[in-house]
Design a binder for these strands. Sequence first.
DNA 1: ATATTACTTTTTAAAGC
DNA 2: GCTTTAAAAAGTAATAT
Lengths: 186, 204
Amino acid sequence: MTDPKETINIENVVASTGIGQELDLQSVAMDLEGADYDPEQFPGLVYRTQNPKSAALIFRSGKIVCTGAKSTEDVHESLRIVFDKLRELDIKVEDEPEIVVQNIVTSADLGHQLNLNAIAIGLGLENIEYEPEQFPGLVYRLDGPEVVALLFGSGKLVITGGKEPEDAEKAVDKIVSRLEELGLLE
Amino acid sequence: RLRKWQERIRTKDAGERNLQFALSEIDRMASALGVPRSVREVASVIYRRALKEDLIRGRSIEGVATSCLYAACRKEGIPRSLEEVAEVSRVDQKEIGRTYRYVAQELSLEMEPVDPKQFVPRFASELDLNEETIAKANEIIDISAEQGLLSGKSPTGFAAAAIYAASLLCNEKKTQREVADVAQVTEVTIRNRYQEQIEAMGFE
DNA sequence: ATATTACTTTTTAAAGC
DNA sequence: GCTTTAAAAAGTAATAT
């Protein structure tokens, strides 16, 4: 039997950082190719990297949010590209700005179909949210690790809110053991 | 001091007026939906609890009132879909849905998932179906749900498909469009659920 | 009638309304 | 609260072919 932990796949990593320098987004938007800047709609400038694929939101304060990367390593690589692009525009950027991972979104597969109705009752209606009229997934908030899991009838799930890959592994372990003791896995 | 006293009264009056408004709105929407008095009473009780727990701050009175009515219908076993409730409310479906989830969570209403069978009597009545067809629809829902087909599916779509299937099996055919219209789902959804249910029933 | 596109949920930072 | 960005899950819906 395949360990559900081995089916874990990181789908998105969100991180924040800053260049320690205020920016004139209007001029950055003019000089940076492919930059999307519409201050009326959103205060951040959007810059997309191709390899690795990601989207960086650059703010007036110099703070930057990177999203869409598939790994922590890709986050660093993407931001290195963004930093270099800014340096090309003669903007001073610290040598190695601190990068903080804020959220990791993961998907996994429990390998069995799930009876969400039974699971809702089993985990306790006060601990879950399951409104199939609004969304097909059952929302399960874990205590430790502090993440949120979305369970689907197919047995696949999404784990989000974690700060490191280990959070997803711990979450899958907890979910599997809880469902097993409830006799709701298979 | 006199000023504070007046302010308290003003606040109290405003609060009282808001409560009256909420309760009259619940009454108006309940009438429009044609639900019994017991549902309005349950909705009122939930609304007063929400008020007591200060859940209305930052939300519209109408939104919370509508959500309480939606929850009350479910609690009483005669659910209305969010779309149906939204039709008689001036708050949009999306806000009703999220406000309902917030209220249900904060008040620990422990709402159980809606049983598709609870929609059958009303939908069947609107379609003028026989008792036999109704019984068949309920049977289809029970059997296919037991086989795990219900997970993640909308209860109205599930009920609509079962009613459509039952109408065929009991020689009282209704078109997908007729059933789709009363259940307020698309024909595509009925078609998809219908295929799975027929297979689960061992027909095909 | 089927295929695409798009929206529903969750998470998270950023600045400003 | 909202606005924007990314991503998965599966269901539903609107539109295109």
